[in-house]
């Protein structure tokens, strides 16, 4: 499947025939097989699937946290295959903003310091770090909680700190893994509102979820089951169709 019609820079994610096979105690487990996805700049994509469907594996590969067994992955014009651990760390630092289900803030550390972590690793000067972190924390509505430590914040607030942290280096891709999984419903709506606002501002978002009403907020939903894409639709009318659809 040649997908070279569009200029590469307009694609944030371009994967071809990704597969991931785990070998454990001599048993082969196919976590992903032949996954080809293109995500264009400015898209808001939800990846849905039941647990064990391979969506976490896909997210790890898309997040440059893991390498595929076969297939290619081009992230924002950069081929992520065969990079060293340190090169992958750079890619994650500059091109990807992670938002995790468990927030993953540093414990006993202020919101400001948490948000500054990626900039520390990127070598941003201290004054600039402080200004940028403050700006993004104000943007997610936490301007009055800069010096609160993570354990002094509610789940929704912690996730907003994590969003600010994901944004500070202006990454090409925001990668969210069940971002509302640990959050009360009303706060989840706030988080989704932020996502939609970011998307409207031009951010590319890929969100993994198993909740249909959360996936609703995306423009496009990719269903994945048993390591394969079973439905990829940017058409709202097809959203609730659960049946596998051949391509």
């Amino acid at each position: 499947m040649a997908r070279s019609a569009s200029p590469p820079q307009s694609f944030i994610i371009e994967t071809q025939h990704l597969s991931k096979i785990y070998h454990m105690d001599g048993v082969q487990t196919v976590a992903l097989s032949d996954v080809s996805i293109i995500v264009k700049r400015g898209e808001f994509v939800a990846i849905m699937g039941p647990s064990g469907s391979g969506k976490s594996t896909l997210m790890h590969i898309l997040g440059a946290l893991d390498q595929p067994t076969t297939g290619t992955y081009i992230l924002d014009g950069e081929n992520v295959e065969k990079l060293s651990d340190d090169q992958l760390a750079d890619i994650r630092n500059h091109k990807i903003g992670f938002i995790f289900q468990a927030y993953n803030l540093l414990p006993r550390t202020t919101a400001l310091k948490n948000v500054m972590v990626p900039m520390v690793y990127a070598g941003v000067p201290k004054e600039e770090r402080l200004a940028t972190a403050t700006k993004y924390l104000q943007m997610v509505g936490l301007g009055d909680r800069l010096d609160h430590t993570s354990n002094q914040l509610s789940g929704g607030q912690q996730q907003r700190v994590a969003i600010a942290r994901a944004l500070v280096l202006s990454p090409a891709l925001l990668l969210a893994d069940e971002p509302t999984g640990n959050i009360a419903t009303n706060q989840a709506e706030e988080i989704m509102a932020i996502f939609q606002k970011l998307n409207a501002e031009g951010h590319t978002i890929v969100m993994i979820t198993h909740e249909p009403d959360i996936a609703e907020h995306a423009q496009r939903i990719i269903h994945i089951r048993d390591g394969k894409i079973v439905n990829d639709s940017s058409d709202h009318s097809q959203r609730l169709i659960k049946l596998p659809k051949s391509k």
Partner: peptide
């Protein structure tokens, strides 16, 4: 371990 994983996810290199 989790903290180290997070730091690496956020771009910390081995050397750091």
């Amino acid at each position: 371990t989790r903290e180290i994983g997070l730091r690496k996810a956020l771009g910390a290199k081995k050397r750091i």
